[in-house]
Simulated scan of single mutants.
Amino acid sequence: MRIAIFSDTYAPEINGVARTLKRYTDYLEKRGIEYRLFVPNVSTPVPTVPQVQRLSSIPFLLYPDCRLALPNPHIKHTLEQFKPTLIHIATPINIGLYGLHYGKKNGIPMVASYHTNFDDYLEYYHLSLLNKLLWKYMHWFHRSFDKVFVPSKSTKEKLLQNQIHDNIELWGRGVNHQMYTPNKRSSEVVKAKYQIKEKNLILYVGRIAPEKDIHIVLETFYSLPEHIRKDAHLIIVGDGPLFDTLSEQHQEQITWTGFMEGEQLAEVYASSDVFLFPSPTETFGNVVLEALSSGLPVIGANAGGVQHLVKEGKTGFLCEPKKVNQFARQTSILLENSDLRSAFSYSARAYAKTISWDEIFDQLLESFKDVLYKKKRISA
Rank of each mutant, 00 (worst) to 15 (best):
E261C: 03
T354S: 11
H177Y: 00
I333F: 04
P225M: 02
E320G: 09
L365N: 12
L218S: 06
E359P: 00
T245F: 03
L61S: 11
I3Q: 02
L100Y: 09
S57W: 01
T281N: 14
I33Q: 00
F259L: 09
F60P: 03
L224A: 07
F277L: 10
P40I: 08
N131I: 12
R54F: 02
H177C: 03
T78D: 08
R377V: 08
S293I: 01
D239L: 08
Q363T: 05
H126S: 14
R349P: 07
E336S: 15
K147L: 13
N176V: 00
Y121P: 01
S332H: 07
E267L: 07
F368L: 04
S152V: 01
M179T: 01
N72L: 06
Q326I: 05
T44Q: 11
R23G: 15
P297Y: 07
K374L: 13
P241R: 15
N162F: 05
L246N: 01
I216S: 10
P73G: 11
S154N: 09
I58W: 01
V148P: 09
V274L: 14
A270E: 05
G107V: 00
A18L: 06
K199I: 04
E252G: 02
A232K: 13
D213M: 11
D65F: 04
S293C: 08
L62I: 11
L55P: 00
P59V: 00
A352I: 01
G99A: 12
P92N: 05
I33A: 01
D146C: 12
Q264E: 15
T25L: 10
D370F: 09
S113T: 13
S186E: 11
T85W: 02
D119E: 15
Y373D: 07
Y222C: 04
R36H: 07
I378R: 15
K199F: 00
S56E: 09
V324A: 13
I3S: 03
S272A: 15
L134G: 08
V17L: 14
V46M: 11
